[in-house]
């Protein structure tokens, strides 16, 4: 497989938000003292009157965003995945999710690829938390180009949205124009023996695994499940029926993430073997690429899971 170009989802987000802020005066951006890291400061420098740094106070940020939304603004809350989900979870639930207010939460530094900062900084539970909120749309773009489309779609959508981004640059899987629709999976590769369903930066890993398997005569479908909630259940069901085996891949704790959501859908709609690649616990300090390797988020591990799933077919 040719080497993919790399691009930063968070820097791309910062630029996109700046552009969108020019077009839409209702957008206000809230940050919690991490605005250089999230690139929210690009918006802040251009539109200081619509930009509110609230300091390291995420609970206040979330309820304030609800107030902005209630008065007709489109607030975008920005911070890291650990600080933007778990810490202010009750504020998100009561102030935003239950009244279904039009608040967007965009978190960078998801997963273990955050690296050296260690487990306190690794957001590996955010998808479980955010998909536990019935009114939230939850999106994990696969790369920088899709991030732009996801942010645009989130701002067009009326209702709460969570978007998950990364610290390091990640492989660009969309070379051409991106066709993005909230709630719709993207078929990146057709195949008949098994389907790999991935989200976020793990989509590139899934594609690499599928390519390696192709050389061994195994034909893999690859789905980019960029929206986790609402999940594209028809697409998952079709994959189960047509390929007979499913493998999920995510940079997230297995409990409550993509694997859990897909398995629940498969169990209800078209039971077939499901294997899951993801995190089984907390990680540690180290370089992001070292951690992804050590904790098994690799093409080789995905390929092995595909073979196990195919073996379990009756």
């Amino acid at each position: 497989m040719q080497k993919l170009a790399m691009a930063s989802t968070r820097e791309t987000f910062g630029k996109a938000l700046l552009e969108l802020g020019r077009e839409n005066q209702d957008i206000v951006v809230l940050g919690a003292d991490l605005n250089k890291s999230t690139f929210a400061n690009m918006f802040g420098n251009a539109f200081p009157e619509r930009y509110f740094d609230l300091g390291a106070a995420e609970q206040n940020m979330m309820s304030m965003a609800a107030g902005f939304a209630s008065a007709g603004k489109i607030p975008v809350c920005t911070t890291f995945a650990v600080f933007g989900t778990g810490r202010p979870f009750d504020q998100i639930r009561t102030s935003i999710a239950q009244p279904e207010l039009n608040v967007k939460i965009v978190c960078t530094h998801a997963g273990i690829s955050v690296g050296e900062d260690g487990k306190s900084a690794h957001g590996i539970e955010d998808l479980a938390l955010m998909t536990a909120l019935p009114t939230f749309t939850v999106v994990t773009p696969s790369d920088a180009p899709e991030t732009v489309e996801a942010v645009k779609a989130a701002l067009r959508h009326r209702g709460p949205v969570y978007i998950r981004l990364y610290r390091p640059a990640t492989p660009v899987v969309h070379a051409g124009p991106v066709k993005f629709e909230l709630g719709k999976a993207e078929v990146l590769r057709q195949g008949k023996d098994a389907t790999v369903i991935a989200c976020g930066a793990m989509v590139a890993v899934a594609l690499q695994a599928a390519e390696a398997l192709q050389n061994e005569g195994v034909s893999c479908r690859v789905l980019n499940m960029s929206t986790l909630q609402p999940l594209d259940e028809p697409c998952v069901e079709a994959a189960a029926r047509e390929t007979g085996a499913i493998v999920t891949v995510e940079e997230h704790y297995l409990h409550g993430g993509l694997g859990s959501l897909v398995a629940a859908t498969v169990a209800r709609r078209a039971p077939v073997p499901v294997e899951m690649v993801g995190l089984t616990g907390y990680a540690e300090s180290g370089r992001g690429d070292q951690l992804l390797e050590k904790y098994g988020l690799t093409p080789a591990n995905v390929a092995a899971a595909v073979k196990r799933a195919i073996q379990r077919k009756r």
Partner: peptide, 18 residues
């Protein structure tokens, strides 16, 4: 929407800044 304490002042500040 309230019920979990401590959130209203933040909400009101957001409304006021809007």
């Amino acid at each position: 929407s309230a019920g979990s304490l401590g959130q209203g002042l933040s909400f009101g500040i957001g409304m006021a800044l809007a």
